[in-house]
Design a protein around this nucleic acid. Structure first.
Lengths: 137, 137
DNA sequence: CTTGACCTTCCAGTAACTGGAAACTCTAGT
DNA sequence: ACTAGAGTTTCCAGTTACTGGAAGGTCAAG
């Protein structure tokens, strides 16, 4: 099948598929006209990539998963371990964002937000201390 | 002051400061020897950038904030609006990550994780349906 | 035979740096 | 005066995972 068909069926942009070929994630055959010719197996790989990428695995992680995927003797435990690591990464990222949000919220709450030029948010960003407001920690 | 001193005082890597100059975020003077010479004002800008970047504002957002910062007539409301937007972005990102985590957790929980080759995680990634386990939601 | 969709390659750009090479300057110690 | 080492300069390339665009070849329908 041509790249356009593969694109629709894998829900990956054409450009992305070409890129995946470039970095060796798929190796479609070529027709006489030079067009890429994707087999069902190639399509499987593309779908696999689409899903694992959208689940936040990096290209390199996908490469690992893909080789595990195609190794019929691989242990389920290996895959589970990688997935667990990924969950931890996601957890860390969530925690980071939450603490970021907390700071931003504090800044917004301290800000009168009218058309006066004084602005506690700016003071925060510039490193000036903000006056404590009712002894919060 | 030299770039090394500015680096230590702003807690920005030397390379990053040069990059910020390249994209016009700071414009230090030059000494006779060609060395950058940072004024107190330059240092303020660098500190401002360090803080706002670490709070997740993009370079372009920082550029906007910086011009608001230096506009003594700007309204506090403008800054507040930008910060509110940023909070919404952070919220969206957190929600995304949480739903991502949910999927990953489901996969891990469905996986026996021993050395057998069958692996529900792989089945998920490859798009195969997984057998429902006790009436899922 | 033309039109338009689809395909090809190659080059460049994105965001925000980071690393490294080659060369110059400064400072402290001998 | 000389030298070693730290600090500085510019420039080029690499990172991640694509995305956009130009210039051109191919295919199917009418």
């Amino acid at each position: 099948m041509n790249i356009g068909t593969a694109s629709r069926q894998s829900r990956l942009p054409v450009k992305t598929i070409r890129y995946y070929e470039e970095i060796g994630l798929v190796r479609p055959l070529r027709g006489e006209n030079g067009y890429r010719d994707f087999s069902q197996t190639d399509l499987e790989r593309l779908k696999f990539l689409q899903r694992s990428r959208s689940l936040g695995f990096s290209i390199e992680e996908c490469r690992d998963l893909l080789s595990l995927y195609e190794d019929t003797n691989r242990a389920s435990a290996d895959v589970k371990a990688i997935t667990r690591q990924k969950i931890q990464q996601v957890d860390r990222k969530i925690a980071e964002l939450k603490s970021l949000k907390r700071v931003l919220l504090e800044m917004v709450e301290a800000c009168h937000g009218d058309d006066r030029p004084e602005c506690p948010i700016m003071d925060d960003l510039s490193g000036r201390a903000r006056a404590p407001e009712g002894g919060g920690h």
